[in-house]
């Protein structure tokens, strides 16, 4: 990519200034509402597992699994993309959105086969989350070990 010329800079600035902006207040409210509701549902699932005798920490894994199942199912039924159109980050950021980001490409590339389609493409979008999440946790661990051990 070369640097933009003066003429391109001028046009880009002019066009960007004129383009419609996302309805910020509406979008943030929708994200807050839907994100909050998904987390409230998560709390109910968490409380259920705690009521079975688990402590809050032990109940975290099963809660995540249930929420993933829910996100995956709604994706399979073709509902999650519509929730996403409305809620934006509100349905992307919760773990149900993580499930959506895995199931959506898995479904999409089914027609290219189970190995090179579903298998290879499943982590198209969620892959970076695992790569950078795991690496960051590893680095944090390394510092922790250097400091404390």
């Amino acid at each position: 990519m070369g640097k933009l010329t003066r003429e391109q800079e001028v046009y880009k600035r002019w066009a960007n200034a004129r383009k419609p902006k996302p309805p910020l207040l509406r979008n943030v409210l929708a994200a807050f509402l839907v994100g909050g509701l998904i987390c409230t549902l998560g709390q109910a699932v968490l409380n259920y597992f705690i009521s079975l005798g688990m402590n809050a920490k032990e109940a975290g894994g099963p809660t995540a699994a249930v929420m993933i199942l829910l996100g995956a199912l709604l994706t399979g039924l073709g509902v999650y993309d519509r929730i996403g159109r409305f809620a934006g980050a509100g349905s992307v950021i919760p773990i149900t959105g993580f499930a959506n980001s895995i199931v959506a490409p898995a479904l999409e590339f089914k027609r290219e086969g189970y190995v090179m389609g579903v298998g290879a493409r499943m982590f198209n979008i969620a892959g970076p989350v695992l790569v950078y999440g795991m690496t960051t946790a590893w680095l944090v661990g390394l510092f922790y070990w250097l400091i404390h051990k």
């Binding site: 409210l29 929708a30 807050f32 994100g35 909050g36 409230t40 934006g88 980050a89 509100g90």
Partner: peptide, 13 residues
């Protein structure tokens, strides 16, 4: 849960 989760999502938005 609603308030904290909603806030995190709103920041994402």
């Amino acid at each position: 849960a609603f308030l904290v989760g909603g806030t995190i999502c709103a920041i994402g938005q």
